[in-house]
Design a protein around this nucleic acid. Structure first.
Length: 218
DNA sequence: CACCAGGCAAGTA
DNA sequence: TACTTGCATGGT
């Protein structure tokens, strides 16, 4: 028989997938662009991040060595539409300074390291918190690190599947302990939760009554 | 006008 | 350790 530990979360995943279909999250973008997006989207609508990334492309600024070297004030003006632009310019430079220093900005080198080691390194970079670290690990490096975000927490606590007071690491463990550690699954699961959240579980105007989860006996 | 969006770190007690 | 506050643009 299949392991019984993961049936509920896998079942929920299947149902969400059938409801929404595939997400193709962060598609057709370079790993570097995903890293940049992961930082710029902190507490910010993706729409605004797109404007900033378009500008970075226009400036031909999407390279690790360039972002390590570029003047912070110049960079901050390019990413202004993404909000917190002075803070985020510093965070981008912190991250790319780390990426160049430790791995010469080479994806193959960083991917040679164990997931937990990279994660702890990322968390030591000022401006990279747990969600940003996991987004980089999962979406840019394609390593199986489950991404928890505000929607994940809100959806699961509203449906009483977790304690409202649960912290980030505990909630991440909750998923990783119960799901097979697969990049494809983690990627799609997080994407589906965000799509569900945007439609039915926003802070303002929540449409909880119409949430498809209600029809899925959990 | 008020509120929110795929967070994080620094300051306070 | 546990709370609070600043950071900032753009959409609803």
């Amino acid at each position: 028989m299949k392991s019984s530990k993961n049936s509920q979360l896998l079942d929920l995943y299947e149902r969400l997938y059938l409801h929404f279909g595939p997400s193709h999250w962060w598609p057709g973008e370079s790993s570097l662009e995903i890293m940049v997006g992961a930082i710029l989207t902190q507490n910010t609508a993706w729409r605004n991040v797109e404007k900033a990334i378009s500008r970075l492309k226009a400036e031909e600024a999407l390279s690790a060595s360039f972002l390590d070297q570029v003047d912070q004030e110049v960079l901050s003006e390019w990413i202004r539409p993404a909000g917190y632009f002075r803070i985020k310019a510093g965070r981008l430079k912190n991250f790319f300074n780390f990426y160049i220093r430790e791995y010469q900005g080479q994806i193959n080198k960083i991917k040679d390291q164990p997931l937990d080691f990279i994660r702890s390194q990322l968390l030591s970079v000022k401006g990279i918190g747990p969600e940003t670290a996991d987004s980089i690990l999962l979406y840019a490096l394609e390593m199986p690190s489950f991404v928890v975000d505000a929607y994940t927490h809100r959806i699961f606590s509203r449906h009483r599947l977790i304690d409202e007071e649960i912290g980030y690491e505990e909630l991440r463990d909750y998923f990783m302990d119960r799901l097979p550690q697969e990049v494809r699954l983690y990627n799609e699961y997080h994407a589906l939760l965000v799509r569900l959240g945007k439609e039915f579980c926003k802070k303002k105007n929540p449409r909880c009554e119409e949430c498809p989860l209600l029809e899925m006996e959990l």
